[in-house]
Simulated assay, not measured.
Amino acid sequence: MRLTTVTLLAAVGVAGCFSSTASAGVKINVVTRTYDVTGTSGQALVASMDRSGPRHGFMARAIAQTNYTKTWDFDFTKAKGACRIKQASGTLNLNFVYPRIASPISPALEKHWKRFIDGVTAHEETHGRIAREMMAATDKSLTGLTVPDDPQCSRTRREAKRRIDAIYDEYEDKQNAFDAREHREGGHVEYLLNTLEAP
């Protein structure tokens, strides 16, 4: 079953800024929150998610959602007029939103719900994994970046931003391609909904 007013599962990436205060490595902060759904049937639970899920765009709601922000800090070194990024330190803030049943349900429906929410969680965790891979690829691209004849490190900063933006776009394409596969007709999202609504 497909819902007309719900975007079932969505990933939203938000580009971040960068500064020149350094800390070591890539830091990942994960926050998971839930919203309550109620119902005594699979159809009722789907309708509750449609009403209460996180917003996706102006009108639609999602069943579950992943969004993230990223920032980068740099430790620069200068030698003979060149600027080098000695350490690139990234922070990824990952936020997951999931539905949580807040009313009594039958053992049979609980079994269907567990299969459904396990699949939803796996989907969102894949978005999280792609975001983590993005940070690792960016870290690899930035660390050791050296620009000659750049005593103020301004060209180095511009090149770092260009690389951050390019890698971000590459991995957003991967996020979108994953969603397209999952949301296609007869795809995994449809399977999960059918599983929940099965008698």
Rank of each mutant, 00 (worst) to 15 (best):
Leu92Cys: 00
Cys17Tyr: 12
Leu192Ile: 06
Pro99Asp: 07
Glu159Arg: 05
Val189Cys: 07
Ala64Trp: 00
Lys70Arg: 11
Asp173Thr: 13
Asp139Leu: 15
Ala15His: 08
Asp150Asn: 13
Asn194Pro: 05
Pro199Lys: 07
Lys114Asn: 14
Ala15Ile: 09
Leu193Asn: 00
Val12Glu: 08
Thr40Pro: 03
Tyr68Gln: 09
Glu159Gly: 04
Val189Pro: 02
Asn194Met: 11
Val30Gly: 10
Ala62Gly: 00
Ile164Cys: 15
Ala62Met: 00
Ala166Arg: 15
Ser19Val: 13
Val12Tyr: 05
Thr32Arg: 14
Thr66Leu: 13
Ser52Ile: 10
Thr138Cys: 15
Leu45Ile: 01
Glu182Cys: 08
Met134Pro: 02
Asn67Glu: 09
Thr7Arg: 03
His123Asn: 11
Pro54Ser: 04
Thr38Lys: 02
Glu185Ala: 15
Leu9Val: 01
Arg155Tyr: 13
Ala64Ile: 04
Asp169Leu: 15
Ser106Leu: 09
Asp36Tyr: 12
Met135Phe: 08
Gln65Ile: 03
Tyr35Thr: 04
Cys83His: 00
Arg100Thr: 11
Met1Asn: 06
Asp149Phe: 15
Leu145Asn: 06
Asp165Gly: 11
Val26Thr: 11
Ile167Trp: 01
Phe178Asn: 08
Thr126Tyr: 02
Arg163Met: 06
Lys86Tyr: 12
Ser154Leu: 14
Asp179Pro: 08
Asn95Tyr: 09
Ala11Pro: 01
Leu3Val: 07
Gln175Trp: 12
Val147Cys: 05
Arg33Tyr: 06
Thr195Ala: 15
Glu133Cys: 12
Arg61Gln: 05
Leu142Glu: 00
Trp113Leu: 03
Ala44Pro: 00
Ser19Asn: 14
Ala11Met: 07
Leu192Arg: 02
Glu197Ser: 08
Arg2Thr: 06
Ala177Val: 10
Gln152Asn: 10
Ala88Glu: 06
Thr32His: 14
Ala198Gly: 07
Trp72Tyr: 12
Thr7Ile: 14
Gly42Leu: 01
Thr195Trp: 14
Glu124Asp: 12
Arg61Leu: 01
Arg163Gly: 03
Glu182Asp: 07
Arg84Glu: 08
Ala10Ile: 09
Ile164Pro: 03
Arg100Ser: 15
Pro148Ile: 04
Thr71Trp: 03
Val97Lys: 15
Arg132Glu: 04
Ile28Leu: 04
Gly90Trp: 01
Lys27Val: 10
Arg155Trp: 08
Thr38Ser: 04
Leu196Asp: 01
